[in-house]
Design a protein around this nucleic acid. Structure first.
Length: 891
RNA sequence: GGGCGCAUAGCUCAGAUGGUUAGAGCACUACGUUGACAUCGUAGGGGUCAAUGGUUCGAAUCCGUUUGCGCCCACCA
């Protein structure tokens, strides 16, 4: 063939060319009119908070591999892309940005501020899409969605409306998690727990009207002004006499009762505890049990309010120290102790959460959770790793109501209106003009927006058209698999399952595959919010998208966390060895193609000639690619990405390049020039290999596909190669193993005595069996070429071989290199002695087993036979080595 | 306080259902550019599989305990 290929694969050019081609040809489109079985995935929509990092790249690559692979396997595939408005996270980002411009969300006002967020969204939303494209994602871009687009808004409205009408959504005044910086409520899942060095303050509450006091321990003395009671354990003899009496809150003259409740741990602190219902979840519950009033002393900004008297306006933490000082001065602070406790912080801005009593919207979870739980138990949705199913179940079994309202500006506004005149309140699918009850125009929508996870929970539904009964929904729902990292199993995966069951009566996906979390070199999780993310474009620019993709597929394994080794110098990427490895691999593929194309005539087809007319080497490599066709296909269904990556890597590099091509090369360059069969086999193997590789390395495979004869159209439309029984040749695989082992033995001998690679040598072989002898004779040329031997003498025993020879005991045969070639004999003998010692050790181990009656009684026959074989082999090897050493020494 | 995961070569990681001489890539050593590829080839060196008990004829692999690291859940103030 006359094509001139560059020496190195030019990935940048190929990537641009083929991605344009695919999108122009609408190759990523999935149609609900198809007769093929559906295979759909909806992308976990990345937050529009900034660019993607490598963690996303991994997530996306794993999905793209499935989509591309399954398409080739005959499915009608669609991968629905989109982004998430990410309420609180994005709002925070934009707040930070406008602060730099000297503004706040309040100075700008709601409308202006939201405009700013849309600008941000457009900027980063587009950047994200560009990153996805560079990575090679085969998303159906015509279906691109956003969690706040028209369709999603409609879905959110519908869902909210239904849940409201069903009584699942309700408004209530509760103690919720409040972020004083974001000034919004948060769900329990949006609170992170952090261990902190705190102090435990011991405070005295004087008994009213008599002598005596109770000392309590608290970490939050600033809340004493909101105390409603002092609580002790009912069985605690130390305090029994106090129960029912009143004590005075320190620094005030307000009296509160001493009550008894079993929540109190007698061992903790003094065994007495203050109850502050409005500022602590435990106390809130206790307050409810004992009908205690809730005093509020901290406002929505985390500052002390007017109820706090002289502390009014003070920050809560400042107030803490001030009150502690005041208590100290008043002689009511007994002591303070250092204390480590876990404090809730906002998952977006790290601010310490304030339990805050306020009106919020909630969703009852019991019923939704039960259905999700049942669906998992019935196998309708399956976690590919059992341990995640367990945590999923445990969470659902202990679920609490979900606080869905947020006091943010960025998000889906709660579609509930309340009448200023008659007080009528209701949810609406369409914005109402006036109060349907009294006709008043003073009919106002709730100011709050919904938890961002409410809309993402509807994602598989909304992206396919719900609430409309679309053909897409009918055909592509439920989707096949959800691929994600483990940190959003509850926040997102569980909610999607609940909503899918609630609104469509079907789980949104049958499989959930949780992949590894990528860590930076320092072991910290890669994350945008932590600033530890690495931009995939840096790696794509340096090594190519295919290389990055392969490395990510290879790394993901079965879900372990992985440190991604990438070296940076002054913010510049120096080296990422794990990606470099696959850049090299891509280059290897490229160059192997270069070689093959040189021998493949343009007019041949990838069909094989009669396999019985082929050489053992030919059948061996055909059998090899056939085997990995099966292994890789199976791996798709078990999400065994490591199998996919390893099979492709090892087969191609070790078997195809290092062995087969080297063998063929020697045949082709030998005097008779080989037969046309070699070209046919090269084409056959390469053709199949490209198709197997394509889902992982789409660009280079598409590029090469068009260069090989008989490859019509895009490789994306080619079929996935099937395993065929007729192409399995275990005998030839065995044969070739023997050949390669013999080659290796000769090479090893040569290297041991530093014979120049070019120098041809004469070697003697005593084959282990007659069969192997025949085989070596038959494959003589191959062995000669691969081992740079000029003559191979097959001997039946030691007698015909020059006595002064060094030997290598391969398992199939003994190989001898005459000592004429030997320069450093002593070193050689030393090496052989080492070998012999190893063999002796093996003999001992085998003997120990075989003389053990229990072993013989318990072990499988096959194991015993194998052990015997091992023993015989080791014994023979040792004997021969000893003999050789003697010969070398003696003469 | 519960639950989970992980500890294997200098580094990053593989090692279903227990029986291997414990593997790969990078790094390291030696040698090597006669046209596929130096982003390469050939041959090597390197590990008491965290510790400790136990089950078993046999454990890197199964069980208990310990140590170290990481994660999730949780209302001991």
């Amino acid at each position: 063939m006359s094509i001139e290929l560059e020496k190195n694969y030019n990935y940048a050019e190929a990537e641009k060319k083929w991605y344009e081609y695919w999108t122009n040809e609408k190759m990523f489109a999935g149609s609900s009119d198809s007769k093929k079985p559906p295979y759909s995935i909806v992308i976990p929509p990345p937050n529009v908070t900034g660019e993607l990092h490598l963690g996303h790249a991994m997530d996306h690559t794993l999905q793209d591999v499935l989509i591309r692979g399954k398409k080739m396997m005959g499915f009608e595939t669609v991968w629905v892309p989109g982004t998430d408005h990410a309420g609180i996270a994005t709002q925070k980002k934009v707040e930070d940005k406008v602060r730099k411009e000297g503004e706040t969300r309040y100075t700008l006002g709601r409308e202006k501020f939201i405009e700013k967020i849309w600008e941000w969204k457009n900027l980063y939303g587009n950047q994200i899409i560009e990153q996805c494209k560079r990575l090679g994602n085969s998303c159906d871009w015509d279906r691109l969605r956003f969690t706040m687009d028209e369709g999603c808004c409609k879905a959110v409205r519908e869902a909210f409306y239904r849940l409201y009408k069903k009584g699942i959504i309700y408004k209530g005044r509760r103690l919720i998690n409040w972020c004083p910086r974001c000034r919004t409520a948060l769900s329990d899942l949006e609170v992170n727990h952090k261990d902190m060095d705190s102090k435990l303050y011991y405070l005295r509450y004087m008994v009213k009207g008599e002598e005596g006091f109770i000392t309590i321990a608290t970490t939050r003395p600033e809340t004493i002004l909101a105390d409603a009671a002092i609580c002790v354990h009912p069985e605690d003899d130390r305090y029994k006499s106090f129960i029912g009496k009143e004590v005075i809150i320190p620094l005030t003259d307000r009296a509160i009762p001493v009550i008894a409740d079993e929540v109190v741990e007698r061992d903790f602190g003094t065994g007495a505890l203050k109850i502050t219902p409005a500022h602590d979840p435990t106390d809130y519950e206790a307050g409810k049990r004992h009908n205690l009033p809730s005093y509020i002393v901290i406002d929505e900004n985390g500052k002390m309010n007017s109820e706090a008297g002289k502390y009014c306006g003070m920050d809560r933490f400042e107030c803490r120290t001030r009150i502690a000082e005041d208590l100290e001065n008043a002689g009511l602070l007994e002591k303070t102790e250092d204390y480590k406790n876990s404090v809730g912080v906002c998952y977006r801005c790290d601010t310490v959460i304030e339990p805050y009593l306020s009106w919020q919207w909630f969703a009852h979870m019991d019923d939704l959770a039960k259905r999700a739980l049942d669906a998992e138990k019935e196998g309708k949705v399956r976690f590919t790793q059992e341990r995640y199913a367990n945590t999923f179940r445990t969470w659902l079994e202990n679920i609490k109501d979900w606080c869905i309202s947020r006091q943010l500006w960025w998000g889906h506004r709660i579609p509930v209106w309340t009448c200023g005149e008659c007080g009528h309140m209701d949810a609406f699918k369409e914005d109402p003009e006036c109060c349907p009850k009294c006709g008043s125009k003073n009919f106002n929508q709730e100011e709050d927006v919904l938890d961002t996870w409410f809309s993402s929970g509807l994602w598989p539904l909304s992206t396919l058209g719900w609430p409309n009964e679309t053909k897409d929904l009918d055909f592509f729902y439920p989707t096949k698999v959800l691929i994600t990292a483990r940190d959003i199993i509850f926040l997102w995966v569980a909610r999607m399952i609940m909503f899918g069951l609630e609104f469509k009566n079907e789980v949104p996906f049958s499989d959930v595959h949780v992949h590894a979390t990528l860590l930076g070199k320092d072991g910290r999780r890669m994350s945008k919010s932590l600033g530890t993310g690495v931009d995939p474009l840096l790696l794509i620019d340096k090594y190519g998208a295919d290389a990055l993709r392969f490395s990510l597929v290879h790394l993901t394994g079965q879900g372990q966390d992985i440190k991604f080794p990438a070296d940076f110098k002054n913010g510049k990427l120096e080296r990422a060895e794990r990606v470099e490895k696959f850049r090299n691999y891509a280059n290897k593929v490229w160059n192997a193609a270069r070689f093959c194309l040189g021998y493949i005539p343009e007019d041949i087809k990838p069909e094989l000639p009669d396999t019985s007319k082929l050489s053992a080497a030919d059948r061996w490599i055909i059998s090899g690619i056939n085997r990995i066709c099966r292994d890789i296909k199976n791996a798709y269904d078990t999400y065994s990405y490591d199998v996919i990556a390893n099979s492709l890597y090892d087969f191609f590099w070790d078997d195809f390049c290092d062995r087969y091509i080297e063998t063929v090369k020697s045949v082709l360059s030998s005097e008779n020039g080989g037969t046309s069969n070699e070209a046919q086999v090269l084409l056959h193997v390469f053709n199949k290999f490209l198709r197997l590789l394509h889902p992982v390395m789409p660009f280079i495979t598409e590029e090469l596909w068009h260069l090989f004869p008989g490859c019509e159209g895009s490789i994306m439309n080619a079929s996935f190669p099937e395993y065929e029984d007729a192409l399995s040749f275990p005998e030839d695989e065995k044969t070739m193993e023997s050949v390669f082992e013999t080659v290796k033995a000769i090479r090893s001998l040569r290297a041991d005595v530093s014979i120049a690679p070019k120098k041809k040598v004469k070697v003697y072989v005593i084959p282990g069996t007659d069969e192997i002898g025949d085989l070596i004779k038959k494959e003589e040329q191959t062995i000669k070429n691969l081992a740079s031997a000029e003559e191979i003498v097959i001997a039946s025993d030691r007698s015909g071989i020059p006595s002064k020879s060094i030997a290598c005991m391969a398992s199939v045969s003994q190989v001898f290199l005459p000592a004429l070639e030997i320069e450093n004999l002593d070193k050689q003998i030393e090496g052989m002695e080492k070998e012999a010692a190893k063999a002796v050790k093996a003999i001992e181990a085998a003997n120990k087993k075989l003389s053990n009656e229990a072993f013989l009684a318990h072990a499988d026959e096959g194991i015993i036979a194998k052990e015997k074989e091992k023993l015989a082999e080791a014994e023979a090897k040792a004997a021969k080595l000893v003999e050789q050493i003697k010969v070398l020494r003696g003469n």
